[in-house]
Design a protein around this nucleic acid. Sequence first.
DNA 1: GTGCCTTCTGTAAGCGTTTGCATCCCTGGG
DNA 2: CCCAGGGATGCAAACGCTTACAGAAGGCAC
Lengths: 360, 360
Amino acid sequence: MANSRPTIKDIARVTGVSVATVSRALRDLPYVAPATRSRVVEAAAELEYEAHPQASRLASGRTWTIGVVAPQFGTWFPFRALGGINSVFAKAGYDVLISMMTAPGDRRRFLRDARSFCRRVDGIVLIDTFVSVGGDSAEAFFDRPVVAVGEQLGGASSITIDNRRAARRAVEHLIELGHTRIGLVAGPHLPDLPTPVPEQRRLGYEDALRAEGLHVDAELAIDGEWTAAGGAAALSRLLECASPPTAVFCMSDEMAFGVLRAADKRGLAVPDDLSVIGFDDHDLAGALGLTTMRQAVDEMGVRAAETVMELIDGEPVADITWEVPLMVRETTATARGRADRLLLTRGLRRAERGRGPSGP
Amino acid sequence: MANSRPTIKDIARVTGVSVATVSRALRDLPYVAPATRSRVVEAAAELEYEAHPQASRLASGRTWTIGVVAPQFGTWFPFRALGGINSVFAKAGYDVLISMMTAPGDRRRFLRDARSFCRRVDGIVLIDTFVSVGGDSAEAFFDRPVVAVGEQLGGASSITIDNRRAARRAVEHLIELGHTRIGLVAGPHLPDLPTPVPEQRRLGYEDALRAEGLHVDAELAIDGEWTAAGGAAALSRLLECASPPTAVFCMSDEMAFGVLRAADKRGLAVPDDLSVIGFDDHDLAGALGLTTMRQAVDEMGVRAAETVMELIDGEPVADITWEVPLMVRETTATARGRADRLLLTRGLRRAERGRGPSGP
DNA sequence: GTGCCTTCTGTAAGCGTTTGCATCCCTGGG
DNA sequence: CCCAGGGATGCAAACGCTTACAGAAGGCAC
């Protein structure tokens, strides 16, 4: 502890070469004789030498750090993504600097200070930051390679899902089961998080209804909170309708959990009296039997990390769309709970098992 | 973009003073004439100057970065903590470097490279890393101030809860409600994560039973997975007992959710046929009405962040124990579901509302 | 007026790397 | 035998800041 760690000079002295040669040898640069290199490498190992990060960063301009910015809303999505991202960068030798947006105003503040953030990283991964909503592209804020997950952003690579199509698929599933009165439990536009996601999912919901000639009833679409409590409240309102729905599509699994709970409290059996489909494939969705649209967040995180490294290596930006497979589980069934339910859902489950990426 | 950002020299030239004076002026050091300081500050603002992070780190030895290491197990606990931690450091001007342990072996690897990690940070927050289990203290791995949340660690400050006492309190709650056959849904020792937590909670469970003269029946304690699926499986086994429990204590809320779901599937009414209490106060616990022990993770994170900054400022290490209040909700009731249930739980709820820190 | 202390400022030496350029040596072709 | 060319190495100048030290200027007590 008291005697600080060895510097490159120590290695140079011990091996009898110059610091320049040590530097080159240790970084596998060309023009170092094999014998010299191995001598240096051995000495470095012996003395447990490791380059001083700040010094090499100053001299080289490379920070070997990636910035990840994540919102805290939902808690679940960004953390899973972070896990995927981190595993990739840990292997590749990058540090991960994180900036979380927890309080109202954090997003604005982050964007204001984005240039400062850029100075300490080689590349940036944006999770659901929605930089594009003002019509800006990445260059307006960042002078580093960036990949955006959750939105398409000019000047950046992106990893997104097709929210509209996935929502449509969810509602189609309900329609296929014979439902015609289908409720929508929607998340609100958060004032501090101007996301187009709820709107896209709502459009998908309407697409599905219209394609089948079903009436889009404003009474059946409830805006709530992005939480289980919000879902529960939304169901209460839906059940007050003159002609209540027999199925609901929730824009998130957390809301769906609230719906499930509220249904149970009111003595409604799921799926016999009410079918429920969510969106996300939350950690708990499988165990709780929730039918949902699967967003493979960890995989998307991994891909985002790989993509930012490719950008740093000079490859061009690209837009990647991730598939959102339907996961049929136990909260959806034919309207009025027919006896053929089990058979039907089994067939669907088999049919819908595909997943994975597509495109660039 | 092309013309890079101004350096301290530019500010010096523009204001006609030396770089040393600029440096002092901008960092609010003494011995700078007020007039000079304001000239410098204005020029810096004008040119949008900001010190080059790597350069100032190299020169000063301070990294203005805090390392946070978090496991990914559970996904929920560490992320909430991270939110609290991050908000504090963002305000204080520290960067947050994160190291996540996602794969088996990551923990060992992290500890092996701990000294290298130390070089890039001024202080460290360890979340559930269980460095102490081998009998080591912080100095064995780190040469920076560290605060450990979730374990007491020699040479470090700690933010912990009393797992044994909290588990005991949970089971006491069930006993107070008249239960005598009380099941335990336990999490396993993970091979890669040698935590004493399950053992402590089990001891608390036994403490409560013994204090009331109840039999500790090995058949009623099931080791499962730390997941909802694990909880569901555990309940199945519990119900196979000759004399099944009327209440269960789950070591985590996620397991409790699985228990709830499994009970519902088998037609058991909660709480009338079966009382369930969890541990954590998971994000979803409130909305799903789960009675549980509240671990105020975000608050603990905030406190951990503050503590590491205090350590950096030279204050001595301290151990802080956080209270774990009982949150009575809707999954626990008197054995056999008496009519006085509502009254009783209301009374308890009022009584148990305290929360917050205690000690050092 | 002298001496001393305090405040303010500048000079320059780091901090520990990376890297452009110069140098030296060796090999092989003419 | 000479010279071109390329591999291997060293020298020293960055990189952009911080900070120890020295010096100038001013104030105050005697």
